[in-house]
Design a binder for these strands. Sequence first.
DNA 1: TATTGTTATACTCTATAACTATA
DNA 2: TATAGTTATAGAGTATAACAATA
Lengths: 154, 154
Amino acid sequence: MKSRTHATDESPRTEIDSSFLKTLVGYNTRRATLRIMDVFTERMDALGLTQVEFSALSIIGRNPGVTPSQLCAELGLLAPNLTKILLRLDRQELLNRKALPTDRRAVALSLSAVGTKLLREAESRAVELELEASSALTSKQRETLISLLQKIYS
Amino acid sequence: MKSRTHATDESPRTEIDSSFLKTLVGYNTRRATLRIMDVFTERMDALGLTQVEFSALSIIGRNPGVTPSQLCAELGLLAPNLTKILLRLDRQELLNRKALPTDRRAVALSLSAVGTKLLREAESRAVELELEASSALTSKQRETLISLLQKIYS
DNA sequence: TATTGTTATACTCTATAACTATA
DNA sequence: TATAGTTATAGAGTATAACAATA
């Protein structure tokens, strides 16, 4: 076993060794997520959207007619929590909700004109802040990173 | 503008298009984090450790004498929240706390014998579950992934 | 006067159970 | 009887303000 450099145990330290945690994929994905989400929150605040509200808006905008249960599955949310998210989006007049003729329990979601306009602006900001938050990466590295991440959660 | 394939708008859908979100680094890091954290929680439950408790324990174990404020900076925690985490670890008799002779406001943290033993087991499980959660990656890809993630948050 | 760490507390997220209306 | 969606609520996680002890 290799000896580890240390002064007297329990003396005050100036440098913290976190090299072990940094060998763990989960630790690194979490730190990266927190960093990007900070930037996201700051930039999207002016539009009144949290990141999960943004994700929901984007899926609805690109999949008109999607149902809440499909949204839950796609975004990994629980139904009662999605209900609250949709309520907030609804209060801002961003959504249309229409009972499905084929199954009147289910709801077809789509964006209102206001919602569509907001989504366009939000997606454009998202792309911008994303590139900025990953500006230490070349576009090739960024592609590689995304593809490796998808191997983990797919 | 390209036309998008669709049936009648607001008809029920079978396939959801989330290709836009999947071009965002933040969306992918978040999904990967959630997946790995699920595995982590499941496997570490038997040891009674959450992931942040594990991170704290690991930093303390590898940096005896570290203070709470240093831990906060290292793990991105706020002081009042770390207090609660340390209290939980303390209740399990995992910690030693000793006022610094040079500054009696500050506390030198280290692991008890029990804490050291638990950490050894926990780190071994962490490495194992990590490799499993990233089993879709070659070890070279895993290295690449970690290095790209660190470019984002460092 | 500033800093370390604690207490109290509030807000958001996430999770579970029970309900309704449809099927 | 089962499913889509809602309501109510409980529990983490995260945030701010105010305090005691020490510097």
